[in-house]
């Protein structure tokens, strides 16, 4: 048995199961965190930002892509749409950033039983997510304020405030709601939850060494993807000149350019996945 290095593949319905599972649970947790009051002591914020451990756990246990995208969509639907808080472009940005962060966390782990790996993955996921959020927030002020650099004290204070909230979130939410719960859940669920979906547990027979992740292509794609995520708003504004005066009565022309931004991001992720699988396959053949 051991010489057959099986690839971790899922059938279409199984993908759907992972998606639904991740979407419902992370969505539910979002609704709960939305309803829990937050505590601010000065600039330090002690709110339950998110239960990141849910998508992290699922990304580690199942196919990371479907778990990650499911969680992101769950967040938008349960946490925003259903509470009447859907906010358009902001959601696309969230979706891309969060999916990317969780996905990366998921592929870091090749052996869910290895606590060190799981811990590193959990923290990495949160750090990537919060870091991209920080960059995106800083960029927003940068774009929004005319002649940003010329305003004395503003650039520094933006970076300071955003940097502080980054550290705050990573240390508070990251440890309490990502690291510890993930370490608690993954070993308990591993081998137990997969059969309920009619799947085999992800095993470390499907070797995926760290060197495989750190391939140049991966890094480039990762950077590109982040650029797409951050630039989501800016990409979509490419259509602005066309649309400002003549397009009000047109129908979906602008939407095409907008959707393009999201589609590009999604395709990139998909390419990333298939690329990874290909890499894996070629490795299995070696």
């Amino acid at each position: 048995m051991t010489q057959i290095k099986e690839r971790y593949t899922l059938t279409q319905p199984q993908k759907m199961m992972v998606f639904i599972l991740s979407m419902s649970l992370y969505g539910l947790s979002n609704m709960i965190t939305e309803l829990v009051p937050e505590v601010n002591i000065g600039p330090v914020n002690f709110s339950i930002e998110y239960f990141a451990f849910i998508p992290l756990t699922l990304c580690i246990l199942f196919h990371p892509f479907y778990a990650a995208i499911g969680a992101s969509i769950g967040e938008v639907i349960f946490g925003e749409v259903m509470l009447g808080q859907f906010s358009g472009f902001g959601e696309i940005e969230k979706l891309v950033i969060f999916t990317l962060a969780m996905y990366v966390a998921g592929i870091i782990v090749n052996n869910p039983k290895n606590k060190v790996q799981v811990g590193i993955a959990a923290m990495t996921g949160v750090i990537i997510h919060q870091f991209l959020n920080m960059i995106s927030d800083i960029t927003k002020v940068w774009i929004g304020v005319d002649d940003f650099e010329a305003v004395s004290g503003l650039p520094q204070s933006v970076v300071a405030i955003e940097g502080f909230s980054f550290l705050n979130d990573v240390l508070f939410s990251g440890i309490l709601f990502a690291l510890l719960p993930t370490l608690y859940l993954v070993p308990r669920l591993y081998g137990k939850i997969e059969p309920l979906l009619g799947m085999k547990p992800r095993d470390n027979k499907t070797k995926y060494p760290i060197s495989g992740i750190l391939k140049p292509r991966f890094i480039i794609i990762g950077v590109l993807l982040s650029a797409v995520a951050m630039g989501c708003e800016f990409l979509s504004e490419a259509g602005i000149d066309i649309f400002e005066w003549e397009a009000e009565f047109g129908d979906t022309a602008i939407w095409i350019s907008l959707a393009a931004a999201a589609v590009v991001a999604l395709i990139t992720i998909i390419v990333l996945v298939t690329g990874k699988n290909k890499a894996k396959r070629s490795m299995a053949n070696e």
Partner: peptide, 11 residues
């Protein structure tokens, strides 16, 4: 915050 970084009311 900007006051700490030498900003003024012009901000």
């Amino acid at each position: 915050a900007s006051f700490f970084f030498g900003g003024n009311l012009g901000i």
